[in-house]
Write a protein that binds this DNA or RNA. Structure first.
Lengths: 190, 190
DNA sequence: ACAAAAGTGTTCCATATACACCCATGT
DNA sequence: ACATGGGTGTATATGGAACACTTTTGT
């Protein structure tokens, strides 16, 4: 999710939402605050990504960016009343030109997310509380960029006890999909 | 490797070497420079670890620390003429009380090193150019904190083609150990 | 001869991968 | 009835873990 920059430098280009840390604020709190202010979205998962500090990465002068990445469920609608300008979602495979070194930051974030996906439980943060196994599989396929065999995927899920079935179904005109919830503890971080 | 602090706060306590980034200096260059200045050691491997930014982690005021971890081969002797005060090595299992949140930083560094050890090749950065397989195994055992079976260890090494044998041996009064070199590309980073 | 570290194979188990068909529903 | 996405089992390959003895040297 990117925002279109209003001021210079890089006015009119897309950039990762962000801003300056307040004097008595921790880094993750600052990241979450800037995200809400600029986009209206609340981060469900927030993890420190990497710190970018090359002296010339910002034409205005020396700026060190402690980048965080946030995950937000699909159904988490844009809150009203944000002071955001244009906020837009892009697939990683089709990004617009980005301000500063933000393309590099996104690349690092995508790599990290792919790496974490199968040894941690971050994927659940991209889904609503109840979801079908196909939903979850689709999230994984989207992030990893390749198809997954549904039998293997489901086997892994229940060998790790990651999901709990509910007795709810989603009726979408075809065979109804059983809905599941995340079986672990609170999937958030930071 | 820790240094004893001279000034306040935490005067006399041990701390991770470090200091402030110069205005036109990149973060890894600053980390390497501070390490040399304060300890005389040159980092053979340097990797960004994590950024610590809690508002109250330094009693003097808001200080954000971008922590790096460095690996140094055993045989890399302390350079003469460093302006260091007391520099001392400690086993992770027996650390002295540390200044600031440095105990936490070391914990994170140790975890990261353990995690990287078997999917990357960082271990070689702790050894001289030629080493015996027992040396390498000992490095791994020390970092991981548990013994490793030598047959499994060697099998893994050559299934991954990580080492090249030389025709040198080390004669130490027992059966001589064949010496190996790292077979990968330059093991450094950053 | 013996002490000490170097070096060497096989078995077993767990996990990952490849692969194709039936099921339940709405229209 | 059929189209659509939901749901299921088996066989094979691969990597990790457990396990003990022989070899070579200096003393």
């Amino acid at each position: 999710m990117l925002i279109r920059r209003l001021g210079e430098p890089y006015a009119g280009q897309f950039a990762i939402p962000g801003g300056f840390v307040l004097h008595d604020e921790s880094l993750p709190v600052a990241a979450a605050r800037e995200l809400v202010e600029e986009t209206g979205y609340r981060a469900k998962y927030l993890e420190q990504l990497y710190t970018f500090g090359d002296p010339d990465r910002d034409p205005r002068g020396r700026v060190v960016t402690v980048a965080y990445f946030a995950l937000v469920p699909e159904d988490q609608a844009l809150a009203a009343g944000s002071d955001a300008g244009e906020v837009k979602w892009f697939p990683m495979s089709n990004l617009p030109p980005l301000a500063f070194d933000h393309a590099e930051i996104l690349r690092v974030a995508h790599d990290r997310l792919k790496a974490k996906l199968d040894y941690s439980e971050v994927g659940f943060n991209l889904l609503p509380a109840e979801f079908s196994l196909s939903d979850l599989q689709e999230v994984h396929e989207t992030i990893l960029g390749h198809p997954i065999d549904p039998r293997n995927f489901r086997r892994k899920l229940d060998s790790r006890g990651l999901v709990k079935e509910t007795d709810h179904y989603r009726y979408t005109g075809r065979k109804p999909a059983r809905l599941y919830t995340f079986a672990g503890v609170n999937p958030s971080a930071e």
